[in-house]
Nucleic acid binder design. Structure first.
Lengths: 214, 214
DNA sequence: TAGATTGTTAATCGATTAACAATC
DNA sequence: TAGATTGTTAATCGATTAACAATC
């Protein structure tokens, strides 16, 4: 468990935002961009952009700024978005369906190769042209495609069991869209995506904001 | 803009996780719970739980721990989840539909009173028993219900315009599910909910994790 | 040349963690 | 009483910000 020199988590989270606007600038023909430009569009400080860029190994030119094209390519590569990563999704409810249809994923290197649900009434009927498969086909598909990433879109009650199934099949990264606290072996990475967190932050910030303006 | 003494953002984000497991413990008849218990279930350190609880004003009893019931009620109140907050949603695509049907919202005080879409083929046909309304009814409904919270579930290209419409109608809190960087006046709070961020974190952590085990 | 920008080193700020007295 | 737990105060850690030399 040797802690390598890694990018700080807050910096990592900002990279997709940089990439998003940089791609637009590239399309608009802007070949070069300064930290000040980026900071302005994202309501951040230029120094923070420079620091973040340094973590990815990007170097700019004094007086000129950064090459937009280099930034886009380097950030994509840094995030692993320059290649397709296979994933399987369990849970074909409304959230699972929405995730399946999310076009942003393939553009960011996520390729959902299998959608599963334990509800027999759902299996067979396709979402976005892809079949919903029964769980008994899960392990085989994961192993055949050598899938490393699993997406959990089932109710909280079933999340741990689904996670166990994923781990057993060889998955080592889990994107958990349920609020459940799932427990996995050390070699597995879990990323929580709990809507309730965002709601809490929004409510409290609105409350604070209202108070500070009285 | 006087910065009141507020809870740190990381602490605020942990509160829904505490609440989630505490509600289950309450249902299970556990009347009292220690920071150690909570820490174990969430893979955190006890001291962090104690600090976080202190921010909400909760006090425990040495040797005993905290009253589960008090914790649940106090956290709910702190987050504003003990009362219903009205919200409107713009964008009845697959994500908007999923959000509409998300049962966790009403339990957490979020009440979506109107769903809007500018696509005339969608308006009228209900999702989860609720009609999708055309945009020309938006301002009136917001003002009639005195809605303060707006949810953006439209494509990036339309997000800024939708935000403008919301602000003009009197909305002062925006939950933005598009990756767009939206700009709003000072009195409006925006909470970003960008799936791409989670994807970036997951990919990079999986990569780091794999490397550290070689 | 002067001005704008990068990248590095140091200072500040804020969150986490440790230490420990108080207490049921 | 002894052990477990809280809550406070101090120490540590990590991220942000500031200062500034280097440079195109």
């Amino acid at each position: 468990m040797n802690k390598i020199h890694t990018i700080p988590l807050p910096s990592l989270r900002r990279l997709p935002r940089y990439l998003n606007i940089l791609e637009k600038m590239l399309d608009a023909g802007k070949t070069t961009v300064s930290a000040t430009d980026i900071a302005e569009m994202l309501d951040l400080k230029p120094i923070q952009i420079r620091k973040d860029m340094a973590f990815t190994g990007i170097v700019g030119k004094p007086k000129i700024g950064y090459s937009t094209d280099t930034l886009v390519r380097t950030i994509k590569e840094f995030l692993g978005w320059n290649q397709q990563t296979k994933a399987v999704l369990i849970g074909a409810g409304s959230l699972g369906t929405a995730l399946t249809g999310f076009e942003g994923f393939s553009r960011r290197g996520l390729n959902i190769v299998g959608i599963f649900d334990n509800n027999e009434r759902k299996t067979g009927s396709p979402v976005y042209g892809r079949p919903i498969r029964p769980m008994n086909e899960f392990a085989e598909l994961v192993q055949f495609h050598e899938v490393k990433l699993g997406i959990i879109a089932v109710p909280q009650e079933n999340a741990q069991q689904v996670a166990d199934t994923m781990v057993e099949a060889g998955i080592c990264g889990i994107w958990n869209f349920s609020p459940a606290e799932i427990h996995v072996p050390d070699h597995v990475v879990v990323k929580r995506e709990d809507l309730a967190e965002g709601l809490a932050v929004l409510f409290v910030q609105m409350q604070e904001h209202a108070l500070s303006r009285e």
